[in-house]
Nucleic acid binder design. Structure first.
Lengths: 329, 329
DNA sequence: TTGTAAGCGTTATCAC
DNA sequence: GTGATAACGCTTACAA
């Protein structure tokens, strides 16, 4: 493993000084075109690349952004992640990946902070007060997405979950549902809390009480298992609001393959997110769209704004959900 | 945005020298326990974290590993990515994300190489000779996964695609299929090439010629669209080998929802990868398992080995695929 | 237009 | 045990 060529090596090869090499790689700097060409050639020959570490050190700004993500269990997470990293790269930022389960977020984020990142984007999971304080101490902006904590000094971008849940209940009520069930995720997650809140409010508004309240883990499998139980009894619900599409599709399977019920006539099902799979002919899932593109755009805008105006007041961007009416409700 | 606290700041606060602060954070170094405690306290108060950039610079080794990935279109990619990043973190490495479409891999990889990474793991996409040479020049080991290039100096970890494809054909032939179709992806991708090779060899061995050869883009949608056409004519195939599960499930939908065919009696379908979805009750897709866990384990082992023995001969690890017999073939 | 020299925040080396 | 001091590879005044 030979060593990386340094600016010194290139300088020697091109017969110039280290400073001139640096200038040759700085588009705005004054260098004779001829010199620049000579240096680039030498650099090419040596396989020289500016060392981003040394560069960041002296310029006191790296182009790293930490991206904290939990386990990617479903296509919604995958799509957000995909779009986000892709967009960051377009703005010349590199994503430093912090893959953490909810209970490790703090430890890992703290470790990652030894890299002087421009910002930390937290997708899912929860981040505790101490960690947020740490980010503040290091002058690192924190952007939460998929969660929202009013107590803390952090920007956030999040679907208006409560509104989405209310839209779902409304849709179910309008088609005559009386016994509506709720299928959520772990109740310490913001996405469960906020959707449950919207669900409860809407139910109350219509004078209904939930037929069931169950919580899975946002996977197909949990939707299927809970669905099997929930739909088998005589007191089964006539509609189910599921907190994400994966669980909704599990519920669909439970209904048709196990409970022998037809959807939506026996039981209506509505999901949340609108992953591509929801539109597949075999599912045609009615769902609340949690649009990826606007979310990622908002994250990037908030980020740019924060970097430009570090002292500006914190922002909370709520993304509007949208009803995607298909065949299951 | 206040500045990060430096070792100097901590030293001043604790009344010691910079060197001692450094020692306090190096577990193996000799420091009086009392001094260490005093320093840690001061550091805590100032929110000090060692600057990984400066550290990497002097130690001449970063704990960054570049992960190059294409667009994450399906759950298989998502799962490999998830498992890989998670495993890397367990070995105290941070993933630097390079999200590139096939035609950008070279440019972006080159840019990313300004970070002195320990290694580059390329998942999907193709990397050209010049880029590989660049990695060699920078002394950065390159590990290819999902692809395999015998011409280049790079380790690789890849499913034995040809074997998997042969197993698929064998399975179809055994159930009496005569008119077998191939549904692949872009023919410049290794996964298409190698699976097509295995498919062709097996077909020849059984004295069969392909009923159809079609290529999509590894998405459900492309499987559906191609399936609609392929299964509508009178000369339709009686079995289809699909290069991944997403397309196979699209094909399943085309068969049942559009062509009115029953699977597997009218047309058998076999996929590749064995994503969780393949096992869902609504699909029960027979498929060739391309196991995530062994793949990721192998990648990490190859990586560790390469870092420990930089000059060791290149390795090619082939992961054994496995037939997952379900209901579609 | 180019070179010299200082300095970014660490750690390694060598004194004491 | 601890403190100077010199690197690491780069950028940037300041000089020439």
């Amino acid at each position: 493993m030979q060593k990386r060529a340094t600016a010194e090596d290139v300088a020697r090869a091109a017969g110039v000084s280290r400073a001139t090499v640096s200038r040759a790689f700085t588009p705005s700097a004054y260098v004779a075109e001829k010199t620049r060409a000579k240096i680039k050639e030498a650099a090419d020959k040596l396989g020289y690349r500016r060392n981003a570490l040394a560069r960041a050190l002296i310029k006191n700004e790296s182009d790293l952004v930490a991206i904290v993500t939990g386990q990617i269990k479903n296509m919604y997470d995958a799509r957000v992640f995909d779009a986000l990293t892709s967009r960051l790269q377009e703005s010349q930022k590199w994503g430093l990946l912090v893959h953490a389960n909810d209970d490790e977020v703090d430890r890992l984020l703290n470790e990652a902070m030894s890299y002087p990142v421009q910002a930390v984007i937290v997708r899912s999971g929860s981040v505790d007060a101490k960690t947020i304080a740490q980010c503040g101490r290091l002058g690192v902006p924190l952007i939460l997405t998929g969660t929202e904590y009013s107590e803390f000094e952090a920007d956030s971008v999040c679907c208006d979950n409560a509104l989405g849940a209310r839209m779902a209940v409304e849709t179910l009520v309008q088609r005559g549902a009386k016994r509506i069930a709720y299928l959520g995720g772990a109740p310490n997650l913001y996405s469960d809390m906020s959707r449950f809140k919207g669900f409860s409010e809407a139910m109350e508004q219509y004078g209904l009480t939930p037929a069931f309240i169950a919580r899975g883990d946002f996977t197909f499998e949990s939707g299927l298992e809970i669905g099997k139980k929930m739909l088998s009894g005589p007191d089964r619900p006539d509609a189910v609001f599921c907190c994400n599409d994966a669980m909704a599709i599990g519920m669909l399977n439970a209904a048709s393959k196990f409970a022998g019920l037809s959807v939506p006539d026996d039981v209506a099902v509505i999901g949340f997110d609108d992953i591509p799979m929801a539109a597949w002919p075999c599912f045609e899932l009615t769902t609340i769209s949690n649009p990826v593109e606007p979310t990622v755009n908002a994250i990037c805008e908030v980020l740019e704004h924060r970097l430009e105006f570090p002292e500006s007041p914190r922002q909370t961007v709520r993304i509007k959900p949208k009803l995607m009416r298909r065949l299951t409700a």
